[in-house]
Amino acid sequence: MSDGLAVDQFIPALLPHDAVGGHTLESRRAFREAGLAATIWARTIHHEYAGEARPYRQFGRLAAHSRQRRLLLYQAATVSHGIVEYLLDRPEPKSISYHNLTPPEFYDPFSPGVAAELRQAREELARLAPEVKLATADSEFNAADLRSLGVLDVRVIPPFIGVGNLRPPDATEVARLRAQKGGPALLFVGRLVPNKNHQQLIRLLATLRAGWNADAKLYLVGAPGPSAYVASLHRLAARLAPDGVVFMASIRGAQLRALYEVADVFVSMSEHEGFGVPLVEAMRARLPVVALDRGAVAETLAGSGVLLRSSELTFAAAMVARLIEDEALRSRLIEHQAQRANELERVPREDLIVAAARAAALAG
């Protein structure tokens, strides 16, 4: 039943295959199913989403002719390109859905421009925070970050996680990958950006090839980030593991599920994670996870998977090799991971997001 509340979500860019964009669309669905009016406003709208969002500067005209109570919900994950300034000039109650900002120091050596944008995004968030009485965050790690800026009431709600990897894997793609595999296969899924620490994954592969199995391969799946960073990865791979690293652009659905099917272990050496959706995808796909304990990784795994306290290569390589060779250990780990994935599936995200929006509007 409608309670007269309209939730207006603001996002810098609504793009395909984007986790924050997907979360925004799913949130809109939840609001509408609960009887709330819900609109997405953006600066950049990809042509595939032409009917899903409106230019954010048109919001004022709609609000001027509406008598509904409104909540302005900012999806925070990058520089706003003017949206935060716009929101600060509006009188309506405001809230934040926080998906984490990568520390700019990771980008300084590779892309000073992106680093500057991340610093600007942090400044924007600090300016918006005092206007917000209640916010949501993907993880307790992210919530603590938001509280440090002065938002006292932050509710932790795990993000909506796509169902693409639950589709049956593409049989043709599985056969192709198995044919070219040759040896044990490590997998990591995540954009080619500096905080993901792909260099250490390549070094880990080299360690495994030198001391355990010379045919081991590493699949790196993700859209390219700063060109200087991507080039450094290709140079390192050519030097340490010739023909051992397979770089793949972002893939989705049955193709991605095929990679999870063929790989032997999912390995993350990421130095900064606000949640880690691919960790959950791997757990869903019954693929053992070995991950460096940084950011929200331990929180997301919640006792499942193998958590590395450091990125020291000898121990990490030994653990990866053991997980591939020890079937009993592998099976126990997969079952623990499946339980954690099921826990995350059962979180009533829709109800929690709607309740948070209503409370934020009242707290105003």
Rank of each mutant, 00 (worst) to 15 (best):
S80M: 01
A42E: 11
K94L: 07
D170S: 11
M269E: 03
G211R: 15
L15Y: 02
T207K: 15
G51S: 11
A143C: 06
A137K: 04
R90L: 13
T44H: 14
V246C: 10
R330N: 11
L233T: 00
L87R: 01
A179D: 10
V174Q: 07
A77S: 15
R284Q: 11
L177W: 09
A64L: 12
L134V: 12
A328Y: 05
L71Y: 09
A129S: 14
L323N: 12
E173S: 14
D8T: 01
A249M: 04
I324L: 09
L233F: 05
P278G: 06
D138G: 04
G303W: 06
L25N: 09
L166T: 11
A338D: 04
H17S: 15
L149E: 04
L149W: 07
A13D: 00
L313C: 02
R209P: 01
Y260A: 07
D215N: 14
F160P: 05
D215V: 00
L236S: 04
A363L: 11
A63S: 14
A126W: 05
R286E: 14
L233H: 06
A254H: 13
Q200L: 01
P242D: 04
P168I: 00
G276T: 02
R252E: 14
R122F: 05
S310Q: 10
A258S: 14
A175M: 07
I251R: 14
D108H: 12
L201H: 05
R358E: 12
R330K: 09
E26L: 12
P93A: 01
R147L: 06
E105F: 07
H65N: 14
R70H: 13
G150N: 11
E271N: 13
T44I: 02
